[in-house]
Design a protein around this nucleic acid. Structure first.
Lengths: 338, 338
DNA sequence: GCCAAAAATGAAAACATTTGCAAAACTATT
DNA sequence: AATAGTTTTGCAAATGTTTTCATTTTTGGC
């Protein structure tokens, strides 16, 4: 292991050509004679040479990486989004530099900086809510950036996502229309999470327009986890006065609610209506199958990937993102009030 | 946006020192006078200068990235693992370069190569099953590498994971002990997936040692999805002759099975026993709560992170990995045969 | 105020590449 | 066999840093 790694000069020597020719043979193969190329390839193989992207990057050549910063990887929905985004981006020859900030926006700034040190060709962030520092940094370095997951016309950078407010409205409307008047809500904390905040606003506005309101102690806040939601909902329905509908901020929370209800022998949707948001893998096949709003992570991921790559390669005009509309899916966990 | 980005020379000029001093002020701050440092920092801020890691890497300085290649991000269990691994690695100042190969091992090789071009400081792969090319490449470049998720004494590289064969045995044993003799299995395809293969072997061996065997047409193979498993199991139990136990290759498949059973009005565990493997988020809180084998993704991720970083920084002896034992969790979906 | 030692700084070489330009080697044409 | 193109190659400069070594500046003791 002592013989240091082969560099382009070693390859050149071995193939009896100059380093320039070796370099060309990689980057503009059409400019070098086939025979020479063959000789070089052989040398490369023999020495186990691997190109050094860092040394290319220095010449202003794109490194082929895109930074992706998420709050966490470990949520069904982000996992799906990351998968789709990274896969599409890989198909276009880029690789993802991934980091998570755990819903701490200052961390996000630090991570973004670090990714810029790596000279990523572009950046992708989740949601529209970011610190001014982060926005400033990205703009000042004018790094192509796309905002994932949430869409707004007024977003300060191109974004690809759904309208989370509308998603909330769709669900709120649906529940109200079914005649429910005693409605509870189970949502994740909304601070630093524009998606959750907007969904909740949407729900509230939809209800308000029908003269409805969620009682203060029926506004449950829980972390993103089946177990937390299950506990909160179990507690909620242990009181004599019960809501007839529980609107959940996302499908995972809805699953938790469903389990809690099953455990207590409350039937869905006869006794209580449950709704989610997201349409995660598994929601359709849940028994009973979950009424929710589809926010197509897959589509968002692939459109975003296309957009960021477009921004990178023809660093042209800031195309303005794309709205992927949410869609109400009425399934079996929602029904008219008794 | 025309003024090109600031480099270290620009900063040096602005701070009226030499580039060397600026460099030192970043890398060995104790060697430069506090006043000078202050001046430099001011210039950095004023010019919006961001260091260029690529230019450092060229000097053999570590870039601070670790390549992680997974089959897919979009499985509950990998998401959990990735989250834990990346978080721990970040805490130690590294960033993850992530890519997925979709269970195609040739893709894995190509990706590994590309990551090496980026001069990652270390690599992490899922499972023990990789192409000879991949192993050869990593060894030849002697890149610190750790294998995640599965553990074996004979692994060709340090690995941190659980014993998937043992996990299978634990479950097989448990089911056999409950007196079941008509047993079905629902597993993902085992080709290119050593984890699944070993689990299944473990199950089969455990049953064989009790003189039991899974009938050919009760060996269901399904992709990793609630919906696929649900369909297969629904079909399975539509026949008059039914198994009394269904052993699933992972928790997601078990959820699918559970939903199928619920839908058909078959009670668990009275009529049929269901087991999973993995203990994913949500399995404990499922109703009925799922009997499974815990494979602690979180622990694995953090131990692996520590190991790879150790290998990188004191590129010393190949510490030999770590076995995180699987643990049988008997919950409410398994019971004695009627 | 002087001197030696210590601290701070700068000049230049090094790192692994790419690229513009010029030279060399071929091809075809006569 | 000479000429004019054309294709292929090499030279040398450039890229943004770090680092070694030498030089300059500062400090403390007298």
């Amino acid at each position: 292991m002592k013989e240091k790694k082969a560099d382009i000069i070693a390859v050149a020597k071995a193939a009896r050509v100059s380093p320039s020719t070796v370099s060309r043979s990689f980057n503009h193969p059409e400019l070098v004679k086939a025979a020479t190329r063959k000789r070089i390839d052989a040398a490369v193989r023999r020495l186990g040479y691997i190109r050094n992207r860092a040394a290319q990057t220095i010449h202003g050549i794109r490194g082929g990486t895109i930074g992706l910063i998420v709050p966490t990887v470990d949520h069904a929905i982000f996992a799906e989004l990351i998968q789709s985004f990274s896969q599409n981006v890989e198909e276009q020859g880029f690789t993802i530099l991934l980091a998570s900030h755990g819903y701490r926006l200052e961390r996000e700034y630090a991570i973004a900086r670090k990714m810029l040190e790596h000279r990523v060709d572009g950046m992708a962030l989740i949601g529209l809510d970011h610190s001014d520092d982060t926005y400033g940094l990205l703009r000042q370095q004018n790094t192509p950036t796309v905002l994932l997951w949430n869409y707004s016309d007024e977003a300060p950078m191109p974004c690809v996502g759904s309208d989370n407010y509308l998603a909330g409205r769709l669900i709120g409307d649906h529940v109200a229309r079914l005649g429910h008047r005693s409605i509870a809500a189970v949502f994740p904390p909304t601070s630093g999470n524009d998606r959750a905040f907007q969904r909740l606003s949407g729900v509230e506005d939809a209800l308000a327009s029908k003269g409805l309101k969620i009682a203060r102690d029926w506004r449950l806040e829980t972390p993103y986890s089946v177990s937390a939601a299950k506990n909160k909902v179990a507690r909620l329905i242990s009181f004599p006065r019960r809501p007839t509908a529980i609107i959940c901020g996302n499908d995972v929370l809805a699953w938790g609610a469903l389990h809690a209800l099953k455990r207590s022998g409350v039937s869905v949707p006869e006794d209580v209506t449950i709704t989610g948001i997201g349409d995660f893998h598994g929601s359709k096949d849940f028994e009973p199958s979950l009424t929710t709003v589809r926010i197509p992570a897959h589509t968002i991921g692939s459109k975003a990937a296309k957009l960021i790559v477009a921004l990178i390669i023809k660093e042209s005009d800031s195309e303005s993102g794309e709205l992927v509309p949410p869609e109400l899916l009425v399934r079996s966990t929602s029904g008219p009030v008794r």
